[in-house]
Design a binder for these strands. Sequence first.
RNA 1: GGGGGGUUAGCUCAGUUGGUUAGAGCAGAGCGCUCAUAACGCUUUGGUCACAGGUUCGAGUCCUGUACCCCCUACCA
Length: 577
Amino acid sequence: MKRILITSALPYINGIKHLGNLVGSQLPADLYARFMRAKGHEVAFLCATDEHGTPAELAAIESKTSTEDYCRKMWQTQKDLSAQFFLSFDFFGRSSSSSNHALTKAFALNLDDNGLLKSVNERQLYSAKDKRFLPDRYVIGTCPDCSYERARGDQCENCTRQLHASELIKPSSVLSGSQDLELIKTKHLYLMQSKLKEKLLTWIESNDHWPKITTSIAKKWLMDGDGLQDRSITRDLSWGIPVEKNGKPWKGMENKVFYVWFDAPIAYISATIDWAKSKKKHPDFWKSWWLNDHGAEDVHYVQFMAKDNIPFHTLSFPATLIGSGQSWKLVDYIKGFNWLTYDGGKFSTSQKRGVFMNQALELFPSDYWRWWLLSNAPETSDADFTWRSFQSSINKDLADVLGNFVSRLTKFTFSKFGATIPNGSRYGEQELNAIREIEKVFISYDDAMNKIEIRKATSYLRKIWSIGNEYLQRSQPWVKIKTDTAEAAKTIRFGFNLMLFFSEISEPFIPSTSNEIKYCLGKSNEKSQWPSLKEDFTSIFEKIDYGDDFKQIENLFVKISNDYALDLAKRFSGTNN
RNA sequence: GGGGGGUUAGCUCAGUUGGUUAGAGCAGAGCGCUCAUAACGCUUUGGUCACAGGUUCGAGUCCUGUACCCCCUACCA
């Protein structure tokens, strides 16, 4: 048994996440967590909301509540939605938790003690009307290069030049439109990542098995231009973790908070602390997951995230951990994802374009979404969501291949014998052939799951389901029953064992359906057991015996009609169209 | 500007260290079955592997160049 630490990128607090956010981190992380648990490993699967920063404050203002209340509410909403998607977090915390406050401050202190923090004088645009410093993105004005009038403070969309908000001509606030902006002197703490460049490079190069996208993004930031840049880790904001030293205001950093990107990844650790607390574990329990000198050396740590997060997880956060001088566990494998697009364009939270987690669940059960998203995960390049593709996946893969297999088997059995597996003969050549074929594909499936090759895994899983239909077709119990009941009964028993097997190996993808199948077989309370490749594979299909009862269930999946798919495409085309 | 990823059948994608007739699912065609959600099974039609050169006995795979698409580029997170 191994210990597996799994974290998925922290969802930002300012609203309900869309399917792109879901498939980029939390959902594949859940798949892996369920797989590893089923294999009998000890898993810590953790996540938390990322709550600090300007967008959270603005969203709170918009909803006319305090930032604290807004975040508490959205945290609850996101937590509930995760649960409805059957995301099996061991703990879903908050980056605003008191443990994260304490830990973040402790990291800053250690980094300072190790000479890795410096104070830098800057000038920032302050908006009197908005009563806040404006991040570059929140300033709009005329580009000094191409004279485009609606250039954003970070980059001109017209000529693509990188900008600083202070360079804009006639800058105005995106929030209020106010032009009453003033450049004010301010000071910020910088994390001197550049000093850790060699250590980071060595560490990254020691991980030669990482996905290409992960390593190439990390190296680019590490080596490009003047190399790794030092990075400011504080902000002039009120909502966040106050910059303090030993419980007192940090000299020269009064009224400032830590930058979200500094405190957010630290929440992986504090979520572990909060989890342990909630489980009433020994106070040092969390350390066995995170500190190498407390046993974390043999933990296998895997992170899931979309590609925009990769620099922070390959450089900034490791710099924080390494720079602290303590024996923190570094990530072993980073699974990075590309983007999911919506019907050829971007998912957009601000423009309400695409499908959001709450809407998705109002339309279809979570397994429908889990299946489409995972079988189309943007692993090698961006992937596109279309209702047509969704319809096809659900109807063919789930309803026709898996759903119909269960349906034809249970209905046939019930109509001929009632809700009990009838007595019959021993397995013969046909069953052994099917088992051999399944074993072959299962080995590939198990391998793909181990390597977190998700699309590949789905195609193997689908193949295994379809072997069930092929077997029934060859065995023809509906013909056999006329002449040889024992033969038909044998096929039925094997078929029910296939059902159980399908339910076990499909659980990471479609946990809810998997439970339904188990309910049908009277095994709802039994924990999923991943078939072992070491034992005799044949014995896996002996778990259901003659005389066992089953319950009739409704069709597992309802098909999506053409009309409905078209209707949905129209309904979700976005407010901008 | 710099960097990354992509371009393979009508569609969505696999193609391991270069090795005989380039694969899968969907869609299309034909046949079979009738237990089942008009579901299932079998067979089958589709490809100058973006383009142009090069290396090699041999290139989808390696090199160079070109075109197009997507993404990142550190203050949205």
